[in-house]
Design a binder for these strands. Structure first.
Length: 129
DNA sequence: TTTCTCACA
DNA sequence: TGTGAGAA
C-alpha cells in the first residue's frame, strides 16, 4: 500500500488555513514536509501534526509550546513524557484562563458600580431640572 | 500553482 | 502570529 500525500493547497483547504500559515509553521520548525524538487509534499504524519498544531492554537498555546509537545512525538521514549508535558501545559493554560476570568469578573463588577452611579446621577439631575 | 524574500502589524 | 506583494 502506497501512502497518500498532500500538497500545501490540499491541506490549506482541508483545515481552512492559508498556505502562508502552513509555510510559517514550517519556518518555525513545527512541520518538516518532504520536498519533490521545490514543492512540499505532506505525508499523513505531517497532516496529523498540522491538525495538532491547530488544536493547540485553539486551546491558546503558543507555537513554541506546541513545538515542545510535538517534538516529543518523535522521541523514542516520548510517549509518556509527551502526555506529561501536555498535562503540564494544560494546567498552566487553565490557571492563566482562570486568572483572566477573575480579572474580567472584577472589571464587570466595577462597570456595574459605575453604571449604577451614572443612573442615580441622572435621576438626581432630572429632579433638579 | 507554488516558491522565496522583504516588509509590516 | 501571521499577512501582502512581487518576482521566479
Amino acid at each position: 500500500m502506497t501512502e497518500r500525500t498532500y500538497s500545501i493547497s490540499d491541506l490549506s483547504r482541508e483545515f481552512d488555513v492559508t498556505a502562508r500559515a502552513i509555510r510559517f509553521y514550517e519556518d518555525k520548525d513545527l512541520i518538516q514536509p518532504m520536498r519533490e524538487g521545490q514543492r512540499r509534499i505532506y505525508t499523513a504524519r505531517d497532516r496529523v501534526r498540522l491538525k495538532l498544531i491547530l488544536r493547540g492554537k485553539r486551546l491558546g498555546f503558543s507555537l513554541s509550546e506546541i513545538k515542545d509537545i510535538l517534538d516529543l512525538y518523535d522521541t523514542d521514549m516520548g510517549e509518556s513524557r509527551q502526555l506529561e508535558l501536555l498535562l503540564d501545559k494544560i494546567e498552566e493554560r487553565r490557571r492563566a484562563l482562570e486568572a483572566h476570568r477573575r480579572d474580567i469578573d472584577l472589571t464587570l463588577a466595577e462597570m456595574d458600580d459605575l453604571e449604577r452611579q451614572c443612573r442615580e446621577n441622572l435621576k438626581e439631575r432630572a429632579g433638579a431640572d
